[in-house]
């Protein structure tokens, strides 16, 4: 089956109020072209699930698409804090639920394994257990030990970006895998963007690096530079200069409007042109 779609068709398939899991990790291999399309859409009240979030969560908060965020971390790593996340948390502009790296993975895994929860010791003795209203303390039915029950996380949609895919929806990830496979398996519908579409014969040569299996994917979109400004090893490194500009823009309302009109409210071709085009990006970001 040929699962190729356009960016707009992916956005159309996501209803307001949907729960969307996003792959990647902070400033690495986020499906940013799909996220930008969602950010400039009229979708509302999304619940976003991220293990380690960055510009993805921050942009969706900054453009008012989000009602609720489930996260272990949201930040820009070496560049510091995420500005819209920080403002939204401090001014209670959305609902936030703090999880942890493993518990997000466990919640997705519970859905995959079709069980209501996964037990863990993680978060015992911390305040995460106090503020997270979804977790419950439980007794081990065999030995009586106190554990934490992490409920299943069941995303309607997963958005991920990979290096290569075939039209059937198999995907190759060459750098760190992050939690993309869990997102892809747990969601009702997984939409995958890729740097390049290859033939299925070419894709199979990647062996174990074919991490996304077509039985889990609903749509494939070829979007070169689709993770930009986050990095996509080995195709390009993170564009820290763009992310610095983003952080500056987010400091004022005027700066942010300007950023939106130049880099969010434009299609992907124009987005790349506003960076000086692919050649300019290659010279700055190719490793």
């Amino acid at each position: 089956m040929d699962k190729r779609m356009s960016i707009d068709e992916v956005v159309e398939a996501i209803p307001s109020g949907a729960t969307v899991a996003i792959g990647g990790s902070s400033i690495s291999r986020k499906p940013m072209a799909l996220v930008r399309a969602l950010a400039r859409s009229d979708k509302r009240d999304l619940t976003v699930i991220v293990d380690v979030g960055g510009p993805d969560v921050d942009l969706l908060l900054g453009t008012g698409r989000v009602r609720r965020v489930i996260y272990a971390f949201v930040g820009f790593e070496v560049l510091g804090l995420a500005p819209h996340f920080r403002r939204a948390r401090q001014q209670n502009l959305a609902e936030f639920e703090e999880w942890t790296e493993y518990t997000v993975m466990a919640g997705l895994d519970a859905t995959i394994k079709r069980v209501p929860f996964m037990p863990t010791h993680a978060t015992l003795g911390t305040d995460v257990l106090k503020v997270n209203r979804s977790f419950k303390e439980m007794q081990d039915p065999f030995g009586g030990e106190t554990l934490v029950a992490v409920p299943a996380l069941a995303p309607d949609v997963a958005l991920i970006h990979v290096n290569y895919a075939d039209v059937q929806g198999n995907g190759v990830i060459l750098g760190d895998g992050h939690v993309d496979v869990l997102c892809a398996k747990a969601a009702q519908a997984t939409y995958m963007s890729c740097e390049r579409i290859l033939s299925s014969a070419e894709l199979q040569r990647f062996g174990r690096d074919v991490q996304i299996l077509r039985v889990y994917s609903k749509g494939v979109v070829e979007i070169p530079w689709g993770a930009h400004p986050t990095g996509c090893a080995p195709d390009y490194r993170t564009d820290l200069r763009h992310l610095e500009d983003y952080l500056k823009a987010a400091q004022s309302e005027e700066g942010w409007r300007r950023y939106e009109s130049e880099f969010v409210d434009v299609d992907h071709r124009q987005y790349l042109a506003n960076h000086g085009g692919p050649e300019e990006l290659v010279s700055r970001l190719k490793v």
């Binding site: 380690v52 996260y71 272990a72 971390f73 949201v74 930040g75 804090l81 995420a82 996340f85 920080r86 948390r89 401090q90 703090e98 942890t100 790296e101 493993y102 518990t103 993680a122 978060t123 015992l124 911390t126 995460v128």
Partner: peptide
Amino acid sequence: KVALVGARGIPE
């Protein structure tokens, strides 16, 4: 007063 980044994997 200041929202930092979130507990990440420290509880584990």
